[in-house]
Nucleic acid binder design. Structure first.
Length: 670
DNA sequence: CATCGTATAGTTTTT
DNA sequence: CTATACGATG
């Protein structure tokens, strides 16, 4: 406790009522949450099992668990829940699935599965998908986040196009149910609906969770807000931590106004502001404050720091995107040699993933180790999706999506026409495609050879399922992978054997992490079903990330991905109109979120910060002129140093910049 | 069923 | 420009 400042202590000790902690960037919010949990357990005699802390990312949950376990140990902490919203939702659904009419081995569809399903439904209905699947998927997700069910969506539909979406929503939801499957949004939505419908179930969970702590509250959407509300009930024992200035996910349904809403929900809400920053120099904070001051605020907040004033913020103009990347890489190389830290102390942040391409190239050319986070996720890889489909079918034979993905991977001579016949039959009988394989009726509608192949597959799958159920799950799974000779299939379908081996290694990583959760068995009822479900939520994939973190590599990521992280030296590249306020955001007049994005980028830096922009940039093969971002004009002028190519001198002087540093910039560019 | 060619689109993405 | 996805063709 003595390590906390007075404001933080206040937040920790206030446990009897609702509390809103407005935590600016780098103000030690995670410390507040973890120490508060420790305080409640150690000083107040609260049982661990009566406390739940919710985060948005697995990474945040993992870190929080780690830090709590350093503060408290022993039996008092048992049963403490530190998890993501989605994981808690999954946990609730797994316990109460019969209430919801789901069978125990349900599948979870990720965004890709969901989109494929929507495409299928559209093609079934209209013969083509008209490139609407993407739009409809978003619309459905928005409805779900807003707790609007399909019937309501149809009733409220606004125009014929919207009606089409609403009807697609209805069919989508029915299809999911038929597949005994859920999507990510359902993981929150279904518990809320269930709690509304069955108050006695809600009471059970309220008895379990007495005190709730929520991190990054500005990122909650309506369904998450309701979940929190319901679990808290009228006890009001709730701590939420958030920062409206770091709300950068509104486009995904987040409602930063949930922060202000709390004041209406709880008239006795206590408010604590954490404004002392332990991360950045005063100059960086001044710059951040200046930028964010251009946004309207419900809660006023000004970060300050005792870490010294620090170096000026550099704004670097580059001729084009190539010069920009070149400049960043060579500078990092140079600064490291001069003893300004190791590679891992540097981060390059950008607005869009496309900017990583060139950057990566330049890092390779100069032989600088780097790590790009984000991009194609582990679970988007084809080999992983294949094996996941096998696992899903293993635990849920109603999962037609999984069935279709793997029934002919590797090749089993089961082609499109066979599957079409099987599909029609299954739909008529109202059963899954897997179950349809073994029905006598299909012999009428399909050629004998096709039926034989289908039955061969289903019989094999049944054998695997049996072994799995009889207690040797992992062995069954490993055998399954070797049975289908997946490795050979990969070699056949990869450009080189090196690629194939890499892919096979991914498969083993997947299986290993499945095994490691089974061994840990820390949760209530840990079986293959639970582990596979958690796997889709990317929950148990910590191993590979750990060894990456220990390596000395420059960190490359989007501004979005950088939230919550910090680096001694930060470069934000492409600080230009149309990029940092993104073109679409300008058109939609949504500059405020872009400004927050900029704010997030700036506040990642501990010691030095550099912002770069280009004069020209090649886009879709065309050379276009770029303008420096409006956010550059919002920075405190006296704290900037302008560098860059010579043409810039004029421009800088117009801005009242002193010639000396301009000359220095000219010098540097040679 | 695989391969090649053409068409098409091209922010951010915690789960 | 470039990656991807889908369609036609052998």
């Amino acid at each position: 406790m003595s390590k906390l400042n007075p404001r933080q202590q206040e937040a920790v000790k206030y446990i009897d009522g609702p509390l809103l902690v407005l935590a600016g960037a780098g103000s030690g919010k995670t410390s507040v949450i973890t120490r508060k949990i420790a305080y409640m357990i150690e000083e107040c005699g609260t049982k661990g099992r009566n406390i739940a802390a919710l985060t948005f990312t697995n990474k945040a949950a993992r870190e929080m668990k780690e830090r709590v376990s350093q503060l408290v140990s022993g039996p008092a902490a048992r049963g403490l829940i530190v998890s993501t919203f989605h994981n808690l939702g999954l946990r609730i659904i797994r316990k109460e699935h019969q209430c919801l009419g789901y069978k125990s081995g349900f599948s979870i569809f990720d965004a890709q599965d969901a989109q494929a399903l929507i495409k299928d439904l559209l093609i079934q209905e209209h013969g083509e998908d008209n490139d609407q699947a993407d739009h409809i998927q978003h619309r459905i997700s928005n409805w779900k986040n807003d707790m609007v069910n399909p019937e309501q969506a149809i009733a409220q539909a606004d125009g014929p196009a919207d009606m089409l979406c609403a009807q697609a929503y209805l069919r989508y939801q029915r299809a999911l149910k038929a597949y005994n499957a859920l999507d990510f949004d359902d993981l929150i939505l279904l518990p809320v609906q269930m709690f509304q419908q069955f108050p006695e179930v809600l009471q059970r969970w309220q008895r379990r969770i007495h005190y709730l702590l929520v991190d990054e509250y500005q990122d909650t959407n309506i369904s998450q807000y309701l979940l929190v509300q319901m679990l808290i009930g009228d006890r009001g024992k709730l701590t939420v931590v958030g920062d409206d200035d770091q709300s950068i996910y509104a486009w995904r349904g987040a409602r930063p106004e949930n922060l202000a809403q709390l004041q209406d929900d709880y008239p006795n809400l206590k408010l604590v502001k954490l404004e002392q920053n332990y991360r950045s120099t005063a100059r960086i904070l001044k710059a951040a404050n200046h930028v964010i001051d251009h946004n309207p605020h419900v809660f006023e907040k000004a970060l300050w720091s005792e870490l010294g004033y620090g170096d000026p913020i550099r704004v670097i103009r580059c001729r084009n995107e190539e010069a920009e990347c070149e400049r960043v890489v060579t500078e990092i190389l140079d600064r490291r040699v001069r003893g300004h830290g190791q590679y891992a102390d540097f981060a390059v942040l950008y607005r869009g993933n496309f900017q990583a391409r060139l950057l990566e190239l330049k890092f390779q050319v100069h032989n600088v180790p780097y790590k790009i986070s984000g991009g194609t996720s582990f679970f988007a890889r084809n080999e992983i999706k294949d094996i996941m489909a096998y696992l899903r079918l293993l635990i849920n034979r109603d999962d037609d999506n999984a069935f279709l993905r793997i029934v002919n991977v590797p090749r089993r001579k089961i082609g499109a026409s066979t599957l079409e016949g099987l599909g029609t039959y299954a739909t008529e009988r109202g059963i899954s495609m897997f179950d349809a394989c073994d029905e006598m009726g299909i012999e009428q509608s399909l050629p004998e050879a096709s039926v034989k192949r289908l039955r061969q597959f289903s019989a094999w799958m049944n054998r695997v399922t049996q072994r799995c159920d009889s207690g040797e799950g992992m062995a069954a799974i490993r055998e399954m992978v070797s049975d289908i000779d997946y490795e050979a299939w990969l070699h056949q379908n990869s450009s080189s054997s090196a690629v194939a081996e890499r892919r096979m290694a991914n498969v083993f990583t997947l299986i290993d992490s499945l095994q490691s959760t089974l061994e840990k068995a820390d949760d209530d009822e840990d079986n293959i079903q639970a582990a596979v479900a958690k796997l889709v939520l990317r929950d148990l994939m910590d191993r590979q990330e750990e060894d990456d973190e220990s390596m000395d590599q420059v960190q490359l990521m989007t501004l979005h991905a950088s939230k919550g992280l910090e680096f001694p030296h930060v470069y934000v590249i492409g600080v230009e109109e149309e990029i940092l306020p993104h073109r679409v955001s300008i058109e939609e007049d949504n500059i405020e979120e872009e400004r927050r994005l900029c704010y997030v980028g700036i506040t990642r830096a501990k010691q030095t910060l550099a912002l770069t922009y280009c004069g020209k940039r090649k886009q879709y093969g065309e050379l276009i002129d770029c303008a420096p971002s409006r956010f550059l004009d919002e920075l405190p002028y006296d704290d900037l140093v302008w560098e860059g190519e010579e043409k810039d001198l004029e421009l800088n002087q117009q801005r009242g910049q002193d010639t000396l540093s301009g000359l220095k910039g000219l010098f540097d560019s040679f």
